[in-house]
Design a protein around this nucleic acid. Structure first.
Lengths: 229, 229
DNA sequence: CGTTCGTTTGAAAATATTCAAGAATCGTGG
DNA sequence: CCACGATTCTTGAATATTTTCAAACGAACG
């Protein structure tokens, strides 16, 4: 799905605002190298498709994130895929002025945003490289709980924006393996899932105890770790 | 080994120039968040140590690279380890002026350098996440050949700066597995190794054919792919 | 209400890891 | 320059983990 099929209408800063439907894709390799994409709302993946049906989601992007074409790995099939209906603004780096603000009224600090994303990327490398399947699953759930969850009486609750396939491609597992891991977590009572795409973390502290990266995830997100009992 | 044990002497830009011996480490978690490290010469790894003896090298840094503390994943034991005697300059982000030049006299473009590093990081995520052990090994050798190799009559030749353990921690394999993979490559005649730490790529095109990321590696490095025969 | 797609699950296979022993290499000091 | 000890690397066999394949199940959609 080429980027020009995207619904575009003029935006404020000489950029283009794109309204993406779920699953819609922006092919990065046909964007200009100095193009920046500001995620205004929604949730997207940065993903690469390799020969032989292989796909790797290198990063999940949330509102407030900024990704440049130049910062994406230069593989042929690299792109952004909307996991939820999302609003993305595309601007040229040169057009980004220092007094520019996001939709949320916060001033854009490009260097800080870029560094934050790089740190997330590094953390993800660690997760994929050195965590067991179970730890990876806990890491993913904790990440989503932090970025998407709202506290409810029954625990942190959120809509899971990624399909099982997407989650597997993110954590570098295969979908069957991931499904097994989810089932086990559900069986343990730590997480409940009212529907396929909704999760309820019943015991956040226990989930945090399952991954060595809990503290780092909190630090990146600007929250503190739940005290273990 | 704390950072202050490092041999430091005043540098040009209000920063500190550090001369690192092989294996010497800069503990990033005790650097200021706005510290930048410019690699002037040598070769370092950005690595994280996890509980249970686990270690992940998230990135190999070469001369010309710049890494900021803020862009490193915020895990406790994160740091830079010199693989070769290296010269690193530490400056505060605020002190980096636009007209600053590296030792090689090239002007520093922080945004471009940062983007390049992010792209490398993403590519590494793909390698770790979706390549087989054999493909990973080919990817690593190609990367090193590009960054460190010099053409000789017998093929691209270079000194391998990482130990087997380091390479394994970079490619998210275990050292035994990696050793087996190296042995196989050697047996195939594709690579020869006059000593443990020196490699000779006898057939670069064949090596490139072994990894789906050959083109991307070349693109990042600014070279073109060897034509297949 | 049937079809389709995504998910779950079991059994077999492939792949990577662990453990342990042995070999090669490196550094040090004689 | 050689010998020794320490380290790093290699390799086989057993084990663990993950993947593959296939079938069944379930939810979503027309």
């Amino acid at each position: 799905m080429p980027a020009d099929e995207v619904v575009g209408r003029p935006a404020l800063n000489g950029g283009v605002r794109l309204a993406l439907r779920r699953r819609q894709r922006i092919a990065l390799h046909q964007a200009a190298p100095d193009h920046l994409f500001l995620i205004e709302s929604g949730c997207l993946t940065l993903d690469a498709v390799l020969p032989q049906e292989r796909r790797q989601v290198t990063m999940i992007l949330y509102a407030g994130d900024i990704i440049s074409r130049a910062a994406a790995p230069p593989v042929g099939q690299i792109g952004l895929t909307a996991m939820l209906p999302s609003m993305v603004q595309r601007v040229r780096a040169a057009d980004l002025t220092l007094d520019m603000h996001t939709a949320a009224r916060a001033p854009i600090d490009l260097a800080a945003t870029t560094a934050r994303l790089a740190a997330r990327s590094g953390l993800h490398t660690i997760a994929i490289g050195r965590l067991t399947g179970e730890e990876r699953m806990a890491t993913l759930l904790l990440e989503m709980a932090l970025y998407l969850g709202r506290p409810t009486p029954g625990g942190q609750s959120f809509e899971i924006p990624l399909s099982r396939n997407d989650m597997a491609d993110y954590m570098a597992l295969n979908p069957d393996t991931l499904s097994r891991l989810v089932s086990r977590l559900r069986a343990s009572g730590l997480v409940s899932m009212p529907s396929r795409s909704r999760a309820n973390i019943r015991d956040l502290a226990a989930l945090e105890a399952m991954t060595p990266l809990a503290k780092a995830l909190h630090e990146l997100h600007g929250t503190s770790v739940t005290q273990p009992v």
